[in-house]
Design a protein around this nucleic acid. Structure first.
Lengths: 160, 160
DNA sequence: TCCAATAATTTGTAAATGCAAATAATTGAC
DNA sequence: GTCAATTATTTGCATTTACAAATTATTGGA
């Protein structure tokens, strides 16, 4: 980073993301939700009954933060937790409740509108190209410290 | 939002931003900085002596959060605050100290590297197009609640 | 001049966050 | 089958964060 901030990609990314997040958050709050709650519900809407770690990865919420968020959502009757009985018994499976799906149904239209507003004036091809660039960007960062590079944190010497 | 998350723009935006932020944060922490500290320093690097509100706007940090962040940075000798004596006396001017500029100098190379890594494999024109799309996106969101639409929160009836 | 309205910043306070340590369960080597 | 290493999740705890209310200062009338 050297020139003006306007030319610095992480800056542009954060700026756009923060503005989107702030506006969305303000809008769903009266509905009894938060941005983070929406993220969990959206992930479970795409595929229900997910493991905590899986949810953390798709929502980009830290696992320990997610634990407490799911606590809250469980208390509110939006999701339920149970330990996996088939397969790996260390994992906890989170699933939505009818109440959770009801709330999701009220949030989806808001989310849809945000996609529309954000991409106003974009030709369909331009919107697609933007999305694709963001996917590539994300993939590029995979190898960095503190990220999906699970191998890096696991990699070790062969017995000293 | 209806289909898979992979097609939902706010999701892609947050996912990329969060991964970038997490990795950067992990990397600058040993240098005694944080992502938020970097954002303030980067803003002041572009233009020093800014008002708090201005700083909040460019860093996308909430004003009240920024107040306390600047408290910390001031205690650490990275910036100094003074009340504006010329012009509007309500405003507080923040400026960097030599120590702050020293830290900035150590952070800039890291920031540069992140831009490079994030955009690896992008043709220069593609990178430019991505940045431009993010600027347009940001502008599109300007009219939304809880955002730059200062007029909206100020707008009022003409004396009932 | 004095005042009401506006604006910039800070403070009160409760909640959210993240790192590190602890807990719980699995796996593979022997 | 047992045990060390690994993995998934939670907990402890200090910090960060955000909303709302309070504070400080300016501005434009009457």
């Amino acid at each position: 980073m050297m020139g003006p901030l306007e030319a610095y990609l992480p800056y542009l990314l954060n700026r756009a993301g923060a503005r989107l997040a702030a506006a969305f958050q303000a809008e769903v709050r009266p509905l009894g939700a938060s941005l983070q709650i929406w993220r969990v519900l959206a992930a479970l809407r795409e595929r229900d009954r997910r493991r905590m770690g899986d949810l953390a990865l798709t929502t980009a919420i830290e696992v320990s933060t997610l634990t407490r968020l799911v606590d809250t959502m469980e208390r509110r009757g939006l999701v339920a937790r149970r330990r996996a009985e088939r397969g790996d018994g260390r994992t906890i499976i989170v699933r939505t409740t009818p109440e959770g799906r009801r709330l999701t149904a009220r949030l989806v239209p808001v989310a849809r509108r945000y996609e529309t507003v954000a991409l106003a004036g974009f030709a369909p091809a331009d919107a697609e190209q933007l999305k694709d660039a963001l996917r590539r960007l994300y993939a590029n960062l995979d190898a960095l410290p503190a990220n999906g590079d699970a191998a890096a944190s696991t990699r070790k010497e062969k017995r000293p």
